[in-house]
């Protein structure tokens, strides 16, 4: 038991900084830029995406031996879209305040590539337990990255934090920070800080999971050659 724990814990913590889905794997950029204008929105989106990610990771991992390789992507998309819709119905029915806050972003989780990325890059090759841990870790990493950006953008761009005005700067906020250009600006800054933290821990960038490589499927992938063409 202790042995499994020591093996599972890194699966959880790697999502925080080392393989942070937003800042290191550069997945889910679109929802990140769109929702990081307010802290409440960021936390709500992070939690909703985490819940969906844990469910889909577990389901896809459990079905990994049943789903044929040829049709894996349609299978994943079907499962992910259904789970998102189920969560959407439940939130609408029982948590109307969160439904109001998340609005269009809840259905957008379907196309959040963190979910599909982890399904295809991790859950289909690992046990259910490891996949759940990966989902929790990735979800926390996503929420943390989103919140860090949202704090910067909301304080600078709206002069408030969590919807509460900050005296002194709320009268004249720097509006560009809640507009798309400011989003990219803050994204770059936070990413730089995260890279600094990740490198300081002594792991080279090349330690990132091969399946998350955007060049996968192209000829000349060294990892693919090394593994005899089994990756791409």
């Amino acid at each position: 038991m202790a042995d499994t724990k020591t093996k599972l814990l890194p699966e959880l913590t790697k999502g925080f900084i080392q393989e942070n889905p937003v800042l290191r794997l550069v997945l889910g950029t679109c929802p990140t830029l769109a929702i990081s204008t307010t802290l409440t929105g960021a936390v709500g989106m992070g939690v909703a995406a985490t819940i969906v990610l844990i469910i889909t990771n577990a389901l896809i991992s459990a079905l990994r031996k049943v789903i044929p390789d040829k049709v894996r992507i349609p299978c994943y998309i079907t499962i992910i879209a259904s789970m998102v819709t189920v969560v959407q119905y439940l939130v609408k029915a029982y948590l109307p305040d969160i439904d109001k806050a998340l609005g269009i972003y809840l259905p957008l989780i379907t196309v959040n590539c963190i979910i599909l990325g982890r399904a295809d890059g991790y859950a289909n090759r690992h046990t259910v337990a490891a996949s759940v841990f990966d989902g929790v870790g990735m979800g926390i990493g996503f929420t943390a990255a989103l919140s860090a950006m949202a704090i910067l953008r909301e304080v600078l761009g709206s002069g408030s934090i969590g919807g509460l005005a900050i005296p002194g700067i709320s009268a004249n906020p720097i509006l560009i920070f809640i507009l798309p250009p400011g989003g990219f600006f803050v994204y770059g800054l936070v990413m730089a800080v995260c890279n600094k933290l990740a490198v300081r821990k002594g792991k080279p960038a090349a330690a990132l999971d091969c399946a998350n490589c955007p060049g996968c499927g192209e000829t000349g992938c060294p990892e693919n050659d090394r593994q005899g063409g089994s990756v791409c």
Binding site: L63, V66, I67, P68, K70, V71, P74, C75, T78, I79, A81, S82, T85, V86, Y89, L90, K92, A93
Partner: peptide, 23 residues
């Protein structure tokens, strides 16, 4: 692959219908 994909679609559709009815 076709059978598995169809099965997954049927199960998902049933789950969606069920949750919709419930909520």
């Amino acid at each position: 692959p076709a059978v598995v994909l169809t099965a997954i679609c049927i199960v998902c559709a049933a789950a969606l219908g069920g949750v919709k009815l419930l909520t």
